Simulated scan of single mutants.
Amino acid sequence: MKKNFAVVLTVAAVVAAGAGGARYLKNDTAQAVAPTTAPGPTVVELAASEISEVRKTDLRFNVPLAGTLRPVDQTTLKSEVAAKVSEVLVQEGQPVKKGDVLVRLDTEDLETRLNERVANLESAKAQLVLAEKNRSMKLSLQQKGYAAQASVNEVESSYRAAQASVRAQQAQVDLARKALEEAVVKAPMDGFVSERAVNPGDKVPVDGKLLTLIDLAKLEIEAPVPTNEIALVAVGQKASFRVPGIEGREFSGRVERINPTTKAGSRSIPVYIRVENGDQVLRGGMFASGDIVVREVKEVVAVPPEAVRGDADRKYVLKLDGGKIARQSVEVSEDATATLVAVKSGLSEGDTVVSAPSIILEPGTPVRIGGK
């Protein structure tokens, strides 16, 4: 009878535990029973790379450019006379100033030629003096009736021929003097010597190449633009570019000219980008690549295109609101680049959205950011 009483007591204890919580019995047959609770919603952890903060920014629409830098101002110095090179005072890469003496040509033959022409001029002047005296005498005799008209005409003709001879010889002297002056070749502008074509002792003909000078202060890029994009490009637009070998620096320029025809053998039109190179870090012949900014939209709310979901009729983003996911309808603009799309309405600066397109979360899902 005692045994049956113990069994009834154990069952009652279990029932009591299920109704009101845990009960602990000293009887050896009693068991501890714990209460049960329903599990809460699972918190999803997002990495910092999977979210984006909504911000205002400027959107730039670009046309790619690629081309070679070349100096705007460059000149090839040539010999104005046929002579032997006496001195070359500069080397390749050397900076020069306007008016600096660069090359001297041998002047011995030039001086001899000048002296000869000066002598010819003096002779012509003497002949003119004689012709003028004969003319005056004939005219005087004609007035007295002692000279025929034919003889007067003859001395008049001789006089005019002597005048022409003086003028011709004077021109020859001027040319000889100019040639002597041009035997000293001076820099016509500030710049650098990019090529030296002669050495002392060389004989150069008229128009023989001596030196090439370039000015690095102003450069330009000739960039071919496809014909299907050339309508977007206009004179005055800004450009930015980079140059291999000069890392960590971006250079700027602007569209200076647009060629009216396509480049031979291609379907592209050359566009010329003017570049100011005050510090002269850029050099002619360097390759440049970058973009021409054809349009710019200022201060717009923008998100990565991966953050925008939905279809053409209804677009939305997954927005973080109070630690939970909310589905926020948005209206997007046609202004979009490869990395950002403008949002007309639905978001404000400072909002946070899910930018990883592979993440699909239901509204109300609690989330936390990794590392926070």
Results as ranks from 00 to 15, higher is better:
V255M: 06
V255W: 04
R257W: 07
N259Y: 12
T262N: 08
A264E: 15
A264Q: 11
A264G: 11
R267A: 15
R267K: 14
R267D: 15
I269A: 04
I269G: 08
R274T: 13
D279A: 13
V281C: 01
R283V: 11
G285R: 04
M286I: 05
M286D: 06
F287Q: 14
F287M: 12
S289T: 15
S289Y: 14
S289C: 08
I292Q: 06
V294Q: 03
V294D: 03
V294W: 06
V294P: 07
E296I: 07
E296K: 14
V297Q: 06
V297R: 08
V297E: 03
K298F: 01
K298M: 01
E299T: 03
V300G: 02
V301D: 04
A302N: 05
V303R: 10
V303L: 07
P304Y: 09
P304E: 08
P304D: 03
P305F: 09
E306G: 14
A307E: 12
A307V: 09
A307P: 15
V308M: 11
V308C: 07
R309Y: 00
R309N: 04
A312Y: 13
A312D: 14
D313L: 09
R314G: 12
Y316C: 10
L318C: 03
L320R: 04
D321T: 12
G322R: 04
G322Q: 08
G323I: 00
K324L: 00
R327F: 01
Q328L: 01
V332T: 09
S333Q: 02
S333Y: 01
E334C: 00
